[in-house]
Design a protein around this nucleic acid. Structure first.
Length: 568
RNA sequence: CGGGGUGUAGCUCAGUAUGGUUAGAGUACUUGGUUUGGGACCAAGGGGCCGAAGGUUCGAGUCCUUUCACCCCGACCA
């Protein structure tokens, strides 16, 4: 492509609403333009990057025997009613009626459609397993789209669905998909981590997220310093903690502790580590048809992890509760403890099981119990893992230490089980001629989000730095001064030769000055720019490496071979 | 959905407290000339229903009311 003919509207200034590097640079370099909240136009460069990613996905999917399909974007609302998700998805589902007043939704994900496609067409165990996928625009009417391509309402996702006769076969496929996804991200040149994820709400026996490591990521993940373990903070667990402070030994007693309603006050009052205090976090727990106040107890040094709390109580959701509401129940906020108190349901963190030398609220204004031995309630109380892990805690699989990172969730793979096949009555006949629901897996990968993730991980102050496998063009041949006929000729020749060799190459043949064109090349982020300019008098040109910003002088007759070697 | 902010040229923004020529700058764009190794210079141009609707006024970008859009923090997010 000739730069003089290309539609690449670069700008010096970023749109005022862009905050993340990926958003700023993709907009400035002429990849995307915003249409409305969460909606973007992809311009030629972005389209090329998207195709690159799609090709890699297609290749890896093909290797593991997954077949590509394409399901309709507009889906009948009936299907969503059948699975029950029309309620659950709520306002994120964009609904509308056609001219005959039939209700439709724009597909936010395609479990229903895919199950509908397969049911009554695949009816025998002999035709299983089956893995179908598509790469397609999705629409979710997000409450708050943000960060450019990172969280749009309209976005491109690869979504795959597998169908199995046995859970063992699903496990095998799940592992194969994890491997394929890792391969895709590795090929794209990304630093990522596969982490364990929460899968409570959707059910199923497990899910993993693929996280691209980047400071701007919206998810926090805990990773082990020694082994492969990694988990979303919502699902992370620990086997212990770093250093356990010295225990404050005391006889069991009730103590007057005025004005110590917070853990900090309490620890200060007794001059002890918060580790030996019991924290109470009261929440309103929402069930389908009732709302209940539940008291969550954990060590004072820990925090409640809400997703774990929801899973522990089988709730739909959890909300804050006010002090007034607690008082109405007869509770004393700031002094609530798990002993001698049955005003509300308790959930106690497993780390408190049999805990000794604890200090907890006495359920009486200005009083705490000291020297508490929680083993007295360990038989009767409900224990669950509800505390969030902390940095420095011990890995659940080895003796390594956990630390936190920020990640961008670019993939999520799920063992779905029979949730959808049962809801939609999608069954096959097994060896015994008995009808069984399909056992399913689902595998998502955010294609447009990957475009942003690549830049979040690969950029500098000058702009984008595309990895070789994701670059819209591999080589940019820049003629420094097109009025210099020799420069232009050498540039044109190299451009043609590279093109004939199948290299994706841009020829910057614009009538602008050197500096302008260099800044532009850096902003766009071509992996290599060949500068045909001043050094031509010595019979050489320069190869500019975008990642390192280093210029290497190369003789004209060697530059082609050198480039072919670099781009391998 | 709660809290905050912003809408003026393609883009980034002044101007609005105190209403008053023909609404500005930078950048981008067009034309001519000079320049050609790090977003050049000179000159001349084109480009605006000042987010929308209603109101107050002799007069509204500016004041009042309503409304829409977008952004940020939070809630939410298979």
């Amino acid at each position: 492509m000739r730069r003089s003919r290309a539609f690449i509207p670069t700008t010096k200034e970023a749109p005022n609403d862009a905050t993340l590097p990926s958003h700023i640079f993709l907009a400035r370099a002429g990849f995307i333009s915003q249409v409305s909240s969460g909606l973007y136009n992809y311009m030629p460069l972005a389209k090329r990057v998207i195709k690159k990613i799609e090709n890699i996905i297609n290749e890896e999917m093909s290797k593991v025997g997954a077949q590509e399909v394409e399901l309709s974007f507009v889906t009948p609302a009936d299907l969503w009613a059948e699975s029950g998700r029309i309620e659950k998805f709520g306002k994120e589902l964009l609904r509308f009626r056609d001219r005959k007043e039939n209700l439709f939704v724009l597909g936010p994900t395609h479990e229903e459609m895919m199950v509908d496609l397969v049911r009554n067409r695949v009816t025998s165990y002999k035709n299983l397993p089956l893995n179908l996928y598509q790469i397609k625009t999705k629409f979710r009417d997000e409450a708050r789209p943000r960060f450019g391509l990172m969280r749009g309402r309209e976005f491109i996702m690869k979504d795959g669905y597998s169908f199995h006769a046995t859970t063992e076969d699903l496990d095998r496929e799940f592992d194969a998909m994890e491997a394929a996804y890792k391969k895709i991200l590795t090929r794209l040149g990304l630093d990522f981590r596969v982490v364990e994820a929460d899968s409570g709400a959707i059910g199923g026996s497990g899910s993993k997220e693929l996280m691209v490591i980047a400071d701007s990521g919206e998810d926090t993940i805990a990773i082990c310093s020694k082994c492969e373990y990694g988990a979303n903070i919502e699902a992370a667990s620990r086997s212990g903690r770093g250093a356990i402070p010295e225990a404050p030994e005391a006889e069991f007693n009730k103590f007057l502790t005025p004005d110590t309603s917070s853990i900090d006050d309490l620890a200060e009052f007794f001059k002890i580590d918060p580790y030996y205090t019991v924290k109470c976090v009261a929440k309103k727990v929402i069930y389908e048809d009732e709302i209940e106040v539940v008291l969550f107890f954990m060590r004072g040094c820990d925090n409640l992890q809400e997703v774990k709390a929801i899973n522990a109580t089988d709730a739909l959701d959890i909300e804050d509760v006010s002090e007034e509401e607690l008082r109405e129940l007869g509770l004393t906020p700031g002094f609530i403890g798990p002993l001698d108190q049955d005003k509300a349901k308790h959930v106690i963190d497993t780390d408190l099981k049999n805990a000794q030398n604890m200090i907890c609220g006495a359920n009486e204004q200005d009083y705490h119990f000291v020297g508490v031995d929680l083993s007295v309630i360990s038989e009767v109380a409900y224990f669950a893992e509800i505390a969030e892990v902390n940095e420095g805690d011990t890995c659940p699989h080895c003796d390594g230490e956990l630390s936190f990172r920020k990640g961008i969730e670019v993939g999520h793979i799920f063992k779905l089980g029979t949730t959808y096949s049962e809801a939609l009555k999608a069954e096959f006949l097994d060896e015994n001629g008995k009808a069984q629901p399909f056992i399913m897996g689902t595998y998502g990968m955010g294609v447009s989000r990957l475009v942003a993730a690549i830049i979040e991980q690969h950029h500098d102050e000058s702009g984008c730095i595309w990895t070789k496998q994701s670059a819209p063009y591999m080589v940019n041949v820049m003629v420094s001064n097109i009025k210099d006929e020799e420069q232009l000729k050498v540039g044109e020749d190299l451009y043609e030769r590279l093109q004939n060799a199948g290299v994706e190459v841009m020829l910057d043949d614009r009538k602008d000055r050197f500096g302008f064109k260099m800044k532009d090349a850096e902003l766009i982020g071509f992996p290599y720019t060949v500068v045909v300019g001043k050094e031509l008098v010595n019979g050489s040109v320069q190869i500019f490496d975008r990642a390192t910003k280093e210029k290497t002088t190369v003789a004209i007759d060697e530059v082609f071979d050198k480039l072919m070697e670099l781009i391998k």
